[in-house]
Design a protein around this nucleic acid. Structure first.
Lengths: 202, 202
DNA sequence: CCTTGACTTGACCGATCGGTCTAATATACT
DNA sequence: AGTATATTAGACCGATCGGTCAAGTCAAGG
């Protein structure tokens, strides 16, 4: 009864962990199954293909993310600008914790997957793009509010929000490549310095 | 005689193209060989392993890059700040051209590889990290000069340089995920707004 | 002319890939 | 109880993976 959920969710959790810690291509169905203690047949009962699994993993992580520390970071109780710092902090502590467990900085699951699969798999690419757009909109809200209360001068909130997300992803990329979460802490706060003005003409 | 160079270089060029356009894991030796019109045995005569090939591809691309438009962008003849815009422009036109040929935005080979392999392959990770550090130092020089001539107020050039590189990589990541080079053009110029001040205390 | 060593050829290797299939089993409804 | 359905088990599939290897081709040097 709930064994269905158990099995499916065990597959999902295992796949998420492995995809995040290594990569999509590098993790096989077999490995996922054996770690999740599930047989191949059961796997393909719940997920028609590896691509479907990836999709589910993206959605699952995206939900957890949105309801987890992103919800905390972008809590309306916090001053808009503080939310940016909170977000950076959250990324830092998360990556640091992950590294201390696994030995390596896993980076951002979405960023990792995006660069790995988006030239090959339109469906996954579109999904990942949607995740980024959703994330960007959180930054956008914060920026709009910051302007409203006069914390920062007006600017192109949409573009700046996307730029901030890009910066965060870039910082994580570099940190992962250096395998050093401190990069996030050192560079992260500069996210607040990014500004894109409204275009006058055009 | 020069057939050796021919063969090796043909392998290198083909591998570079395929790795860039797709991914490391997704491209097999067999495919590289058949596109490069080389036999498996010849391949392994020149490259002991796929990892060695990846290494060579990274070095090769890094050289071309450093001597190509990066050299142009960071030309001392240009005003330091203009170099940043030049760099962004170069990335934009490159990605746009690549997309119009292949249909998809390949992104940055180094960024792609970094996220794909750096949790799995220490050697490649270190090499990619070195490439990033070299790139970062070009930004650093430009910033130092910009400060020297009074174009911008003093700041932590090392940190800011790394942050700018991170931003550029992040912008490319997002653009690739959206499969739209225009993202580079829209967000890219904001690289100039990034600032990291010197730490007063520790 | 003969040897040497770089280079090429392509068959071959075991392992693993994503995915299929049939049969068994557990569960739920009538 | 009987039947339908959901789930599991695990053998099996062809294809492909990175890599090996023995046999040869070929040009340069003695």
């Amino acid at each position: 009864m709930n064994s269905e959920l158990d099995t499916k969710e065990r597959i999902l959790a295992t796949a998420r962990e492995l995809f995040h810690g290594r990569s999509y291509a590098d993790v096989g169905i077999k490995e996922i199954c054996s770690l999740a203690k599930v047989q191949k047949g059961s796997f393909y009962h719940f997920f028609p293909s590896k691509q479907d699994l990836a999709m589910a993993v993206i959605d699952n992580m995206s939900d957890d993310w949105a309801n987890g520390f992103v919800a905390e970071a972008f809590d309306e109780a916090l001053a808009p600008i503080e939310r940016l710092d909170y977000m950076v902090d959250a990324v830092y502590y998360w990556q640091k914790a992950a590294k201390s467990i696994e030995g390596r900085m896993p980076g951002c699951l979405f960023g990792n997957l995006a660069l790995e699969v988006s030239t090959r798999d339109e469906v996954l690419r579109a999904r990942l793009n949607a995740v980024f757009e959703k994330a960007s909109s959180r930054f956008n809200e914060a920026l709009e509010q910051a302007i409203e209360i006069g914390d920062i001068p007006p600017l192109d909130t949409k573009a700046t929000a996307t730029a901030m997300l890009a910066y965060l992803e870039g910082v994580i990329l570099l940190a992962k490549t250096r395998n050093d979460p401190e990069v996030v802490r050192n560079l992260g706060p500069a996210i607040k310095s990014i500004r894109i003005e409204y275009k006058h003409k055009n």
